[in-house]
Design a protein around this nucleic acid. Structure first.
Length: 294
DNA sequence: TCTGGGGTCCTAGGACCC
DNA sequence: TCTGGGGTCCTAGGACCC
């Protein structure tokens, strides 16, 4: 729900700004607790989520132990999903909420998920759900047995097969704990008052660039992206590949080339700036996980 | 109801090269 | 002079997730 609406509905609600450092600190404590569990391989998914890979004869017991340990150390509750694939574990977590444990494996996958709408799957959103509807595919079970050719024709060679696999519960069970190297960083701002003239827009872009360069921590920049939302809500992106550089002047000049593409005379409601970063050699090839790479 | 911010990955189409 | 196929790179847009 947009904050504006929430504030209107509950006039005396207390609305706090995001406190990223506090959330990161709490998150780190939780993740450290997970890593301290016997035999655990931990793949962090975000501030409040992680895969824990483990071999055990008693998954439920292990899950309960995790919940106790996290609660003891951080006073935070968590729910745990147990699965024989990453997708099943992730979806199982939803059934475990709040503060419970749920097991979802090949054994009960279709019993639990078969009749549910495809949008309940992790990775299927409203758009894909509608396109599947148009193909006559509504349930998870129907997706699982959808003809490969039809799926590929609609969604492309990779995604077509991937969605079908999703209907079957996914196939990967590998928890990967190699530290994540960000592909890029971005900052965007929705302005309280639309930006009108060129100087204003350029100044705003420079502010975003400063922030983004700080996040980039001197890693070489290989690409730039500018996102523009014109009033009322039309969004455009301009991107540019650049020869790897850490030089501020060069990056600024390239960014301004993108800014020059903004339509004159159109009020700008949002500006976003993104940098794409060079990947270190050891993270570039081989095991980098991809969306379609189950 | 009317619009948050920071990410990732995939696809299509065009340009260019061999 | 024109055609064809295959590969790579770039840009824009789309979709999804937390």
């Amino acid at each position: 729900m947009p904050l504006r609406i929430a504030a209107r509905k509950i006039p005396d609600a207390v609305i706090l700004p995001v406190d990223a450092p506090a959330y990161t600190a709490a998150s780190t404590e939780v993740m450290d607790t997970l890593r301290a569990q016997p035999g655990a391989v931990v793949q962090v998914l975000g501030w409040d989520e992680a895969f824990v890979g483990v071999e055990t004869d008693d998954p439920e017991g292990y899950a309960r132990a995790i919940q106790r340990a996290v609660l003891e150390r951080t006073r935070l509750h968590c729910s745990v999903g147990i699965g024989d694939t990453l997708v099943r574990a992730k979806i199982a977590t939803g059934f475990g909420k709040p503060q419970e444990v749920f097991r979802l494996t090949a054994e009960n996958w279709f019993e639990v998920m078969g009749d549910r709408p495809v949008i309940d799957l992790w990775g299927v959103g409203s758009k894909v759900s509608k396109r599947l509807d148009a193909l006559g595919i509504h349930s998870v079970a129907e997706l699982a047995s959808a003809p490969e050719q039809a799926m590929q024709a609609e969604f492309g060679p990779r995604m077509g097969l991937w969605y079908r696999e999703l209907g079957r519960g996914g196939s990967s069970a590998v928890v990967d704990d190699t530290p994540w190297v960000p592909r890029g960083h971005s900052r965007e701002t929705t302005y309280q008052v639309d930006l009108a003239d060129r100087t204003e827009i350029e100044a705003a872009a420079r502010v975003l660039l400063e922030q983004v360069l700080e996040d980039a921590e001197n890693r070489p920049i290989v690409g730039l992206g500018l996102k523009v939302r014109y009033a009322p809500f039309t969004t455009k992106t301009f991107t540019k590949r650049v020869a790897p550089t850490t030089d501020r002047e060069t990056v600024t000049a390239k960014a301004m080339e993108l800014v020059a593409k903004i339509a004159p005379d159109r009020p700008v409601r949002l500006l976003g700036l993104r940098v794409e970063l060079a990947m270190p050699d050891d993270a570039r090839d081989g095991h980098t996980p991809t969306r379609g790479g189950w």
